[in-house]
Design a protein around this nucleic acid. Structure first.
Ligand SMILES: [Zn+2]
Ligand SMILES: [Zn+2]
Ligand SMILES: [Zn+2]
Ligand SMILES: [Zn+2]
Lengths: 142, 142
DNA sequence: GTTGACCTTAGAGTTACCTCTAAGCTTATA
DNA sequence: TATAAGCTTAGAGGTAACTCTAAGGTCAAC
């Protein structure tokens, strides 16, 4: 049985975060010492590691809560439930990627059109674009 | 002079958001009516549109505050200051893109390895990966 | 002259995920 | 036996960008 700071060191989370995850139902200490200290079993450690891994991959705490409830009773759940969560996450990631790609494109164009020199910004093309509502049909560099 | 809801309709922000932006120094109403209503001049509208455009591109409110202070007195600032803000944003976006790409890759691999069927999740490969600390050197599909 | 849309303010609530503090036990070390 | 490190709890604070509410004043129309 590990104490909280031992668990923290083992899986790479702070004790604060572990208590926070506990409050949100993700991690449990299956026992307490006489003085009330949290004590983690091997199964608890595995569960915590599962949470950490899922978090590293990018699942939200809510996703992880769902995955955990499946993990807890695998035979009452199907692979489909797991892939649904995973696919939703993938879609979310793809959506964000598309947003970022658009931003990247606009920012690059803005930088292409401004020399970035030390002269006064009186006629700065970036400020002009921002004043004119964005990169209109008249593509800058292209 | 426009009232707040007219400005809102004009530039595509809610009145709530406009007041929120005002509280954060991004938008101003240069006048008030006798009864205290905000009244926006053409210059105010342009400023608000600038904010909206910058926000659409993805600049943070803090970035926009800086851009606005440059815009307000262009001759006291250089193009470099503008490109610094823009370049920093571009780097931030690129960093986030890299993160998302990594997530995308892992999620795709997870999905490749699980059939997603309706059978019990007893041996679900996704749960196994999560239990085993992630996609180790043993690349799944590849 | 009253309905109803619109305006005002301060301030609370939301989402996601922590991060920290205070006040007070417990345990290990010197 | 002290001293420090570590543990407990409830609850506050922080970030970003909103979003909404309450309680009330204003304005145009019918
Ligand atoms: Zn399966
Ligand atoms: Zn410039
Ligand atoms: Zn320049
Ligand atoms: Zn599966």
């Amino acid at each position: 049985m590990l104490k909280i700071s031992e668990l923290a060191g083992r899986i790479g989370l702070s004790t604060h975060t572990i208590r926070f995850y506990e409050k949100h139902g993700l991690i449990e200490a299956s026992e307490r010492s006489e003085s009330g200290y949290r004590l983690y079993s091997a199964a608890d450690v595995n569960r915590a590691a599962f949470v950490k891994t899922a978090r590293n991959i990018g699942f939200s705490l809510e996703d992880i809560a769902q995955l955990l409830s499946i993990r807890l009773d695998r035979s009452s759940h199907s692979c489909q439930e797991v892939t649904d969560i995973t696919r939703n996450k993938l879609h979310e990631v793809s959506r964000k990627m598309a947003e970022l790609k658009a931003m990247q494109k606009v920012l690059s164009r803005l930088l292409d059109n401004c020399d970035g020199g030390l002269e006064k910004a009186t006629h700065c093309s970036i400020l002009e674009v921002l004043d004119n509502g964005g990169l209109a049909a008249t593509g800058g560099v292209n």
